[in-house]
Amino acid sequence: KTYTFRVRIVDEETGEEKEIEVTAKSEEEAKKAAEELKKKYPNLKVELE
Rank of each mutant, 00 (worst) to 15 (best):
K18H: 14
I20L: 07
L37H: 02
E16N: 05
Y41N: 04
A34K: 07
A24V: 12
E16S: 05
E28I: 08
K40Q: 10
A24Y: 12
T23R: 10
P42V: 05
T23M: 12
E35S: 08
E13L: 13
E47H: 11
E28L: 11
D11Y: 03
P42F: 06
K18L: 14
E28H: 09
V46L: 09
G15C: 05
L44S: 12
V7R: 00
L44Y: 11
L37C: 06
K25Q: 12
E27Q: 10
N43P: 03
T2C: 15
L37T: 02
K18C: 15
A34Y: 15
K1C: 15
E28R: 07
K18A: 08
A34M: 15
E35T: 08
E47W: 14
Y3A: 02
E21K: 08
V22I: 15
D11A: 01
A24C: 14
E35V: 08
K32L: 13
T2N: 11
V46Q: 03
E47D: 09
K18Y: 15
R6Q: 05
E47A: 07
V22R: 01
A30R: 02
K38G: 07
T4H: 07
S26Y: 02
V22S: 01
K40E: 07
E17A: 10
K39M: 09
E12H: 10
K38Y: 12
V46D: 03
A24F: 14
Y41A: 03
F5R: 00
T14W: 01
K38V: 11
A24M: 05
E47F: 15
E36Q: 10
A33V: 15
K25A: 14
E29T: 03
E49M: 14
A33P: 00
E12C: 14
T14K: 03
E21G: 03
G15S: 02
T14D: 02
Y41D: 02
K38R: 14
V46N: 03
E35P: 00
N43C: 07
Y3E: 02
A33R: 10
I20D: 01
L44F: 13
K45G: 04
T23Y: 15
I9P: 00
E28S: 09
I9C: 07
K40I: 10
K40A: 08
V46W: 11
L37S: 01
L48I: 12
A34T: 11
Y3G: 02
E19S: 13
Y41I: 03
I9Y: 12
A30K: 01
E13V: 12
F5T: 00
E21S: 09
T4I: 13
E21W: 15
A34W: 15
R6Y: 12
F5S: 00
